[in-house]
Lab assay of single mutants.
Amino acid sequence: MAAAAAAGAGPEMVRGQVFDVGPRYTNLSYIGEGAYGMVCSAYDNVNKVRVAIKKISPFEHQTYCQRTLREIKILLRFRHENIIGINDIIRAPTIEQMKDVYIVQDLMETDLYKLLKTQHLSNDHICYFLYQILRGLKYIHSANVLHRDLKPSNLLLNTTCDLKICDFGLARVADPDHDHTGFLTEYVATRWYRAPEIMLNSKGYTKSIDIWSVGCILAEMLSNRPIFPGKHYLDQLNHILGILGSPSQEDLNCIINLKARNYLLSLPHKNKVPWNRLFPNADSKALDLLDKMLTFNPHKRIEVEQALAHPYLEQYYDPSDEPIAEAPFKFDMELDDLPKEKLKELIFEETARFQPGYRS
């Protein structure tokens, strides 16, 4: 834990890192770190609560700039109880001085990944967590956004079992017609939660990839272990087919990539493993919904509104309290091709509203 900075004593240090967030945020305490930044909790002297502050230093890398800009653009436009918001952003007053960006968010005690390492969940908890994931996802999908990296560590939890989806750095506007060349190379989302079509096709992607990830998360809540822990690309596919069985001819016809289709045709026939054999203690309604989410063919996979209306979630289902976005989200430009200098300018502009004396 960093010592509390005395008023006016300059930035606090946390594990050798400068955290320049005073005077409003003090009493910093280390939480963890990701690929390009550290997260601390801090005391907000204005709202009198502890908050989470993520320090991001992305400006050396085009990919990190892209992810940072995506996350900020999306989260500043989203407003939903099951999606983490941005409360404040701290950065230098000029673009030349801006080396880091500090993002202030609600402090959540833990995440689903940490929880599943230590606790076996009751059916009631599984049901409530799944409902909140789908409630947040309904809003995301209504904005025409794909999260693309749903996994237990991106689901934040607090002691009252509130759940918030975080990390929109890989999110995209849904565009089933656009052929994202190089899709697989830039697709760094965790393999275990990846839909089979991501490994088999490169053309376009749809909201059904997020539903697949939610199915993987439900299976993990039922058993405290990942359902498809593939060691590499082909191993991942083999794990999936080992449980779902061989795809039907109709399902194979959806695979545009001939090499991928021929690979699947070359494999020995596998039978589907019954879900109640894998999860003998699970609620039968939970397994019915799991089956509809972990469907090989993305066109037959359940959609988020149908999933919310499934009998497993009937005690929570309330369409009048499951809000959607006001308007579909649009990125003005494809960020993939922009140089990091341009992305830095866009991050600077996007964060201006939090600067003292800002006038829109």
Rank of each mutant, 00 (worst) to 15 (best):
4 A>M: 09
5 A>C: 07
6 A>V: 07
12 E>P: 15
13 M>H: 07
14 V>N: 13
15 R>F: 09
17 Q>S: 13
17 Q>A: 09
18 V>S: 14
18 V>L: 07
22 G>W: 12
22 G>M: 12
23 P>I: 15
24 R>C: 06
24 R>E: 09
24 R>S: 00
27 N>K: 01
28 L>Q: 00
28 L>M: 01
29 S>T: 15
29 S>W: 12
31 I>S: 12
32 G>F: 07
32 G>H: 05
35 A>E: 03
35 A>C: 13
36 Y>V: 10
37 G>Q: 04
38 M>Y: 11
39 V>R: 05
41 S>P: 15
42 A>C: 12
42 A>Y: 15
42 A>P: 07
44 D>Q: 11
44 D>F: 08
45 N>T: 06
49 V>W: 10
51 V>A: 14
53 I>T: 15
55 K>E: 02
58 P>V: 14
58 P>D: 14
59 F>P: 13
60 E>C: 15
61 H>M: 13
62 Q>C: 04
63 T>W: 05
67 R>C: 13
68 T>K: 04
73 K>H: 06
73 K>C: 03
75 L>Q: 01
76 L>H: 14
76 L>C: 13
76 L>N: 15
78 F>E: 05
78 F>D: 05
79 R>V: 10
79 R>N: 14
82 N>I: 00
82 N>G: 10
83 I>A: 15
85 G>F: 13
86 I>S: 05
86 I>N: 03
87 N>S: 13
92 A>Q: 15
92 A>M: 15
94 T>P: 02
96 E>T: 15
96 E>Q: 14
98 M>G: 13
99 K>F: 09
102 Y>E: 07
104 V>N: 08
107 L>M: 03
111 D>S: 07
112 L>R: 07
114 K>M: 05
115 L>H: 14
116 L>N: 10
117 K>G: 07
119 Q>T: 13
128 Y>T: 11
130 L>I: 12
131 Y>T: 15
131 Y>R: 14
133 I>L: 03
133 I>A: 12
134 L>C: 10
135 R>M: 10
135 R>I: 14
138 K>W: 09
138 K>Q: 05
145 V>F: 04
146 L>S: 06
147 H>E: 04
147 H>I: 06
149 D>A: 00
154 N>M: 02
158 N>T: 03
159 T>Y: 05
159 T>V: 06
159 T>M: 07
160 T>Q: 10
164 K>E: 05
165 I>L: 04
167 D>Y: 00
167 D>P: 05
169 G>V: 01
170 L>G: 08
170 L>N: 06
171 A>P: 03
172 R>N: 03
173 V>P: 06
173 V>E: 00
174 A>D: 07
176 P>E: 02
179 D>L: 07
180 H>T: 08
181 T>P: 04
183 F>C: 06
184 L>T: 03
186 E>P: 08
187 Y>P: 08
190 T>L: 02
190 T>H: 06
190 T>R: 01
194 R>G: 01
194 R>W: 04
194 R>E: 01
195 A>V: 02
197 E>V: 01
199 M>K: 00
199 M>H: 01
200 L>F: 10
201 N>E: 06
201 N>A: 10
204 G>C: 10
205 Y>T: 02
205 Y>I: 06
206 T>S: 00
209 I>Q: 01
211 I>T: 05
212 W>S: 01
212 W>M: 02
214 V>W: 03
215 G>M: 03
216 C>N: 04
217 I>A: 07
220 E>F: 05
222 L>V: 09
222 L>G: 01
222 L>T: 11
222 L>E: 05
223 S>D: 07
224 N>E: 08
225 R>Q: 12
228 F>K: 09
228 F>L: 00
229 P>G: 04
230 G>L: 09
231 K>E: 08
232 H>R: 04
233 Y>D: 00
235 D>Y: 00
236 Q>T: 05
238 N>C: 07
240 I>E: 07
240 I>W: 09
242 G>I: 14
245 G>I: 07
246 S>W: 13
248 S>H: 13
248 S>K: 11
250 E>F: 14
250 E>N: 15
251 D>V: 02
253 N>C: 10
255 I>C: 06
255 I>L: 05
256 I>S: 08
256 I>H: 06
258 L>S: 11
260 A>S: 01
261 R>Q: 01
261 R>F: 06
262 N>H: 10
262 N>A: 09
263 Y>H: 13
267 L>N: 14
269 H>Y: 08
269 H>M: 09
271 N>I: 00
271 N>K: 04
274 P>D: 09
276 N>C: 12
282 A>S: 02
284 S>H: 12
287 L>W: 07
288 D>L: 06
289 L>F: 09
289 L>C: 06
290 L>C: 11
294 L>N: 04
294 L>H: 06
295 T>C: 10
296 F>W: 13
298 P>F: 14
301 R>Y: 03
302 I>S: 08
303 E>S: 11
303 E>R: 11
304 V>K: 08
305 E>D: 00
306 Q>Y: 15
306 Q>V: 15
310 H>R: 04
311 P>F: 11
311 P>I: 13
314 E>F: 15
314 E>A: 12
315 Q>L: 01
315 Q>H: 03
315 Q>M: 15
318 D>R: 14
319 P>T: 01
322 E>M: 15
322 E>L: 14
324 I>A: 15
324 I>R: 13
326 E>S: 14
326 E>A: 02
327 A>W: 12
328 P>D: 06
328 P>N: 11
329 F>H: 15
329 F>G: 14
331 F>E: 08
331 F>M: 15
333 M>D: 09
333 M>H: 07
336 D>G: 07
338 L>P: 11
339 P>D: 05
340 K>N: 00
341 E>I: 15
344 K>A: 10
345 E>D: 00
345 E>Q: 13
349 E>C: 15
350 E>P: 15
350 E>Y: 15
351 T>G: 11
352 A>V: 02
353 R>V: 05
355 Q>E: 08
357 G>Y: 15
358 Y>V: 10
360 S>V: 08
